[in-house]
């Protein structure tokens, strides 16, 4: 690995102060992605500021009826927390479908939001990549793009966001709490990650001198009718080709509220208000689900190797909505998709 300096932050204010003094410094929490990127020479921070010891490790109910999750809560602790398992099982399932138990033990809640794409060309420093080297070009558009995006792409970048946890957080309409030199602010989850546009080097709207302190879940957890279905090349421990988070509120078999988010298909978790609106007042049948799938995939575009994702996503959306409606969420250990 290339050399860097190391410093530990004592508290959030100290972390903000330290990052402000060194523009080429980076925060490190779980390190599961950043250390790897440094090994591949994709990232080259002059200094790592260790925030893993900051006292941001609690999962607590809020007065508004939701839950506040500290940014340093390890992914495993969050997935198995009783409040999350009982009230937000969609989030629990999504987290446990990602990575391995070792990595989930290491990875932090805040860091999960900030992980970089796994696009092959982003990692391969011998090839052009606008995300790694702005202006150098995109190798994936005409390259091996089987894992790349079909929605919200630009001519500059067709990378996907790799997180499973974020797909559930998008569907649940979480809020991101951040702090910076100008004070604290909140960012709606839908506004946190960006589409690539002409600035694919920027994954999120977090400023370089800001730090994530917490994720807030609203009261509604859709714990009765939800499912997270992840389609990947292996049965476990692989990034999603397509994943679907579905959450429904039902009155008998009529849909009162619907949330739908896709992973593995875009630069951010993909939602569509039209798709969710199309489900309102509908019966929970395949025809309604197919209509919602068409809305959610409106404008989808393949780049050759990833054309299959469009049909795969359509079928996965229909299947996941069915699982949610029946109250039989996809199991993470029994791999049969029912």
């Amino acid at each position: 690995m290339i050399p860097f300096q190391y410093a530990r932050a004592n508290d959030v204010a100290d972390a903000i102060k330290q990052i402000a003094t060194d523009p080429s410094a980076k925060f490190i929490a779980g390190g599961t992605n950043l250390i790897d990127l440094i090994k591949y020479d994709v990232e080259g921070p002059s200094r790592l500021i260790d925030i893993s010891h900051l006292p941001l490790r609690s999962v607590e109910p809020t007065s508004a009826g939701g839950v506040l999750i500290g940014a340093m809560v390890p992914n495993t602790d969050l997935a198995y927390h009783p409040l999350i398992e009982q009230r937000y099982p969609l989030l629990s399932r999504a987290i446990l479908s990602g990575a391995s138990q070792q990595l989930r033990n290491m990875a932090s809640t805040g860091g999960n939001l900030l992980q970089r794409t796994r696009c092959f060309y982003y990692y391969d420093t011998a090839t052009p990549c606008n995300k790694r080297e702005p202006g150098s070009g995109c190798s994936a558009i005409d390259g091996v793009n089987r894992i790349n995006a079909i929605l919200g792409t630009s001519e500059a970048c067709i990378a996907t966001h790799p997180s499973d946890m974020c797909v559930a957080l998008a569907a649940l309409e979480a809020t991101v709490h951040v702090a910076g030199p100008a004070g604290a602010r909140t960012i709606a989850f839908a506004d946190f990650h960006r589409l690539p546009g002409n600035t694919p080097q920027r994954d999120t709207n977090l400023e370089p001198d800001e730090i994530i302190t917490a994720i807030e879940l609203p009261p509604k957890g859709f714990s009765a009718n939800y499912s997270y279905l992840k389609i990947r090349d292996r049965l476990s421990y692989a990034f999603a080709l397509v994943s679907v988070a579905a959450a429904l509120e039902l009155d008998g078999d009529t849909i009162k509220e619907a949330r739908l988010a896709l992973g593995g298909v875009a630069h951010k978790p993909w939602r569509s208000t039209a798709a969710e609106a199309a489900l309102l007042g509908q019966r929970t049948d395949a025809a309604a689900f197919a209509k919602a799938a068409d809305w959610l995939l409106h404008g989808a575009k393949g780049y050759g190797h990833n054309n299959f994702k469009i049909g795969l996503a359509r079928r996965a959306i229909i299947r996941t909505l069915g699982q949610a409606a029946r109250g039989t969420p996809q199991s993470n250990s029994d791999k049969k998709i029912r």
Binding site: I2, S24, P45, T127, E133
Partner: peptide, 21 residues
């Protein structure tokens, strides 16, 4: 094309990092 890794982009630190006990 030339390698475009981070080591070539970032101005490296002026002083060598110290080892830590």
């Amino acid at each position: 094309m030339a390698r475009s890794g981070a080591a070539n982009r970032v101005t490296r630190m002026a002083t060598a990092p110290e080892k830590i006990p």
